[in-house]
Amino acid sequence: MGVKGVYVMLFLLEITSGVIGGVPRKPIDVPFQKNYVPTWASDHIKYFNGGAEVQLVLDKYSGTGFQSKGEFLFGHFSMRMKMVGGDSAGVVTAFYLSSQTSEHDEIDFEFLGNRTGQPYILQTNVFTGGKGDREQRIYLWFDPTKAYHTYSILWNMRQIVFFVDDVPIRVFKNCKDLGVRFPFNQPMRIYSSLWEADDWATRGGLEKIDWSKAPFVASYTSFHVDACDATTPQKAQICNTRGRMWWDQRAFHDLDGPQYRSLQWVRSKYTIYNYCTDRTRSPTVPPECARDRDI
Results as ranks from 00 to 15, higher is better:
27 P>N: 11
199 D>N: 12
44 H>S: 04
105 D>A: 02
122 L>G: 05
109 F>A: 06
126 V>I: 09
88 S>P: 15
261 R>E: 03
161 V>E: 04
143 D>H: 11
229 D>Y: 01
161 V>N: 01
278 D>R: 01
229 D>Q: 03
266 V>N: 08
205 G>T: 02
58 L>N: 09
104 H>E: 08
136 Q>M: 10
233 P>I: 15
143 D>W: 11
47 Y>T: 04
266 V>P: 08
79 M>C: 03
84 V>N: 15
256 D>M: 14
208 K>V: 12
242 R>L: 07
262 S>R: 09
115 R>W: 15
161 V>I: 13
110 E>D: 12
44 H>M: 01
221 T>S: 11
192 S>V: 05
162 F>D: 00
26 K>T: 03
40 W>L: 13
195 W>N: 07
294 D>I: 01
278 D>T: 12
61 Y>W: 10
67 Q>Y: 04
92 V>C: 14
70 G>M: 10
243 G>S: 04
116 T>E: 14
236 A>T: 05
193 S>L: 05
277 T>K: 09
184 F>L: 14
179 G>A: 01
9 M>R: 15
152 S>R: 00
158 R>H: 11
83 M>P: 07
23 V>H: 02
138 I>M: 09
167 V>A: 06
131 K>A: 12
44 H>Y: 03
55 Q>E: 13
18 G>C: 05
105 D>G: 01
228 C>S: 03
139 Y>E: 08
162 F>W: 15
283 P>C: 09
27 P>E: 02
281 R>H: 02
141 W>F: 10
159 Q>T: 14
150 T>S: 00
157 M>T: 14
219 S>F: 15
90 G>T: 12
67 Q>K: 13
217 V>N: 02
73 L>P: 15
286 P>D: 13
44 H>A: 01
8 V>C: 07
7 Y>S: 07
65 G>A: 08
134 R>Y: 04
36 Y>L: 08
141 W>A: 13
95 F>K: 07
16 T>K: 00
154 L>M: 04
289 C>V: 11
263 L>E: 03
244 R>Y: 12
251 A>I: 03
88 S>L: 14
125 N>M: 06
98 S>R: 14
21 G>F: 00
238 I>N: 05
249 Q>D: 09
